[in-house]
Design a protein around this nucleic acid. Structure first.
Length: 270
DNA sequence: CTCCATGTTTAGAA
DNA sequence: CTTCTAAACATGGA
């Protein structure tokens, strides 16, 4: 599930496994995952240098290499990183492998090839070029209210719009809205100040809790909706049968009792 | 066989 | 300009 919490865990994984080691080899298994770079230019950029530090913005991991260039990783729907020892079997669907002087390898694994690897002069330049909104975890309540004031449409579409704010996808937008007690198709313009405050608090609590759980659903709080998002799922708080609507082109799961639609009697549950 | 799935981009409509 | 939908991308599971 590569949304903000999952991507943050990938970033920390790079820190724990791949920093400060000379890069001996860069192998591109499928150039289709590269965006605007060739295997050759990537090799020239990285060979003999080391990864120095990492950053994250939204769903992107940035890794600074010696020489000042930044490697940019995006994971699509199925991507992740895997570190392994020399002699171990390369993970299947490894599209890009960096080999280090200490005999370790870092593989970018992407079964469905929907993710991309590219290069940028800086994270800031990349964010500007792709017109990404501020990272979702960097939004304070004032910034969120400010964004809301200039937004029309459904709250679900807003949370998921990477140009509005970066990092939230289908699963975590459902979770945030559930914890805030707001229906996915509630119009942003109709959100009261109090609802926006709740949304802000839920946004931070959900993303933080997910990161603390190492983005592993089995470690997340029992009242999370996450693992119940399917046709016979029930609300982990009140037990009602979950329902789904279409929003932002995706299936959005919600509890009909805890997340009233606009016009419904307000719920006291959250 | 069909439909669906955590991602983004693009085209076209309203 | 903003926002929405559908389609495309690639692959596997139900």
């Amino acid at each position: 599930m590569p949304e903000l919490p999952d991507v943050e865990i990938q970033r920390r994984y790079v820190n724990a496994t791949a920093l400060h080691q000379p890069i001996e080899r860069v192998h591109v298994d499928d150039a289709a995952v590269l965006d605007g770079v060739t295997p050759q230019s990537l090799g020239r950029m990285l060979h003999g240098r080391a990864f120095e530090l990492t950053r994250r913005h939204g769903k992107y991991v940035f890794i600074r290499a010696g020489g000042g260039h930044w490697l940019v990783l995006h994971f699509g729907m199925t991507g992740y990183l895997a570190c392994y020892r020399h002699g171990d079997r390369t993970p299947s669907h490894a599209r890009f492998v960096t080999s280090f002087g200490n005999g370790r390898h870092l593989a970018y694994v992407s079964q469905r090839k929907l993710g991309r690897i590219t290069v940028a002069d800086s994270p800031e330049a990349f964010v500007r070029r792709h017109r990404l909104g501020p990272d979702a975890l960097a939004l304070d309540r004032f910034a969120l209210c400010d964004l809301a004031a200039r937004r029309r449409g459904f709250v679900k579409s807003w949370l998921m719009d990477q140009h509005a704010m970066a990092g939230i996808g289908n699963v975590y937008s459902d979770e945030i809205l559930f914890q805030a007690g707001i229906h996915p198709r509630y119009p942003v313009a109709a959100l009261e100040h109090e609802a926006l405050e709740r949304l802000h608090q839920s946004l931070h609590e959900v993303l933080r809790a997910a990161i603390d759980a190492r983005a592993d659903p089995s470690r997340m709080p029992a009242e999370f909706l996450l693992t119940h998002r399917h046709a016979d799922g029930r609300c982990p708080v009140c037990g009602a049968a979950l329902r789904a609507v279409r929003a932002a082109g995706r299936r959005s799961w919600f509890c009909p009792d805890c997340q009233p639609q606009q016009g419904d009697a307000p719920s006291r549950r959250h």
